[in-house]
Design a protein around this nucleic acid. Structure first.
Lengths: 210, 210
DNA sequence: GTCTATAGAGTGATAGAC
DNA sequence: GTCTATCACTCTATAGAC
């Protein structure tokens, strides 16, 4: 990847995070890179493709981070704890990209949206498998697997919306807070109350767009 | 409030929810109302003011819903349970407005943004007071009050992003799931691990914009 | 690879008639 | 209150020189 291409992508992440995708113009990005706006089209076919490449990179790295964290960890509770720490850590360490990935899906065209949603679904699946396994082993209370997975991921993702690296708590400290909260909820909250029919949601949408 | 004004506001809620604030044009809204776009300016000074009125209405009603739910409920655990049910119920019953309120703050000018953030802060305060009280009474484990309040609210708010009224679970069933998960986390997760210095965050931002 | 110049479409908002 | 007409501007994207 050429250096100019990287410069453009980094400037776009910065601006999409600060102003939002729709409020950021190609001119803004070009200005931040000290090039002319037409020069940008040598690297990206459109503003939408630039957004897609950012999200694609983020999702790929997110998935790899999870897999690395789970590799060599055994036992369902330990694996869930590792997964939560990985998710929180990634979202706080790469806050801007993750903020964009969770707020600018609207900017994607249908094909690209489908691709990103597929990556996100695969990622969520890892958590859903862990919840199901823990529930079957009796480590976690029985509950609605999809709702629980949305709850866990949303909770941890939200850190990317308020976290300040210069703040009082470190990434590890915040991850520890979420880890304990989630494990308590999984173990002690009898989640089956609201869902007598079983664990396979039928009508629920993934956490997507309207 | 005149009927046309209401029609415009409802059409805007529908469109802002479906397409997003920036992707919705004044023409789109006017078309949906069967008026000319210039006619819209008789009721709202700008597109931005229209967004603000929607959010203002939503926040006012959200606050009132919480106060109504807490009125006449005593005991800190029962009050927290009632607050969670109120929050979840409001977000699922008025899904579109709440979706907008949580994703389109960028469209507001600085003065309007400040007003909405102030309303949201007052709302969050109610939850923070409950957490502190429960912690002091020993009903909840000690923990970081701001982080916990963000966690609770984010968790329950997220329902507005995936909930489908035609889905498998009713609003009450989903509220019950969240209620149990949250109370378990508050009671059993020793949240003080990550925060040895006390319960008064210093550098944390509210869950706002970058 | 990067530039200058510009096409082409759409936007929010206003003026003024009725 | 609602209309027609239009302003003034910005935006994404492309053409073509160097």
């Amino acid at each position: 990847m050429s250096s100019t291409r990287e410069t453009i992508q980094l400037a776009a992440i910065e601006l999409f995070h600060r102003k939002g995708y729709f409020a950021t113009s190609i001119s803004d990005i070009a200005l931040a890179c000290d090039i002319q706006k037409s020069g940008l089209y040598y690297y990206f076919a459109s503003k939408e493709e630039l957004l897609f490449r950012i999200l694609e990179t983020t999702m790929t790295d997110l998935m790899r981070s999870l897999q690395d964290s789970l590799q060599a960890v055994s036992g369902v509770e330990a694996r869930m704890r590792a997964a939560v720490r990985s998710h929180v850590g990634f979202h706080l360490n790469r806050q801007k990209e993750n903020f964009i990935a969770n707020s600018e899906l609207r900017g994607l065209n249908p094909e690209h949206l489908e691709a990103i949603v597929a990556m996100r679904d695969a990622y969520e699946k890892t958590f859903q498998v862990l919840i199901r396994q823990g529930s079957e082993e009796g480590v976690f209370a029985p509950g609605d697997i999809k709702i629980l997975s949305y709850a866990i991921l949303t909770l941890c993702t939200s850190g990317a919306f308020w976290f300040k690296p210069s703040g009082r708590l470190s990434v590890g400290a915040i991850a520890a807070i979420y880890e304990r909260f989630i494990i308590s909820g999984l173990k002690d909250g009898d989640m089956n109350q609201g869902s007598p029919g079983g664990n396979h949601p039928r009508g629920d949408a993934p956490a997507s767009l309207p």
